[in-house]
């Protein structure tokens, strides 16, 4: 596994002990991993809201 990939991927894996420090490279904070994951999930949820929201809007409109 290469360095930058390890750094970046470790943010995804929650829980202690996964903040890898390889060859003296930067250690990523657990809080940052959480923020990346929550950010991504939040944005994905936002996208889902737009998708289903617009369909729901039209379903509602066609029944009223």
């Amino acid at each position: 596994m290469d360095v930058a990939f390890t750094c970046a991927v470790s943010q995804l894996l929650d829980g202690p002990g996964n903040s890898l420090s390889v060859n003296g490279t930067r250690t990523l904070e657990t809080s940052m991993k959480r923020r990346v994951r929550n950010g991504a999930l939040g944005l994905a949820a936002l996208a889902a809201v737009f998708y289903f929201g617009f369909i729901a809007l039209l379903v509602y409109r066609s029944h009223h």
């Binding site: 944005l43 936002l46 996208a47 889902a48 737009f50 998708y51 289903f52 617009f54 369909i55 039209l58």
Partner: peptide
């Protein structure tokens, strides 16, 4: 993120 789902929704319909 705001508009690609809207396109997807419209083509789904």
């Amino acid at each position: 993120i705001a508009v690609m789902p809207v396109l997807a929704g419209s083509v789904t319909m």
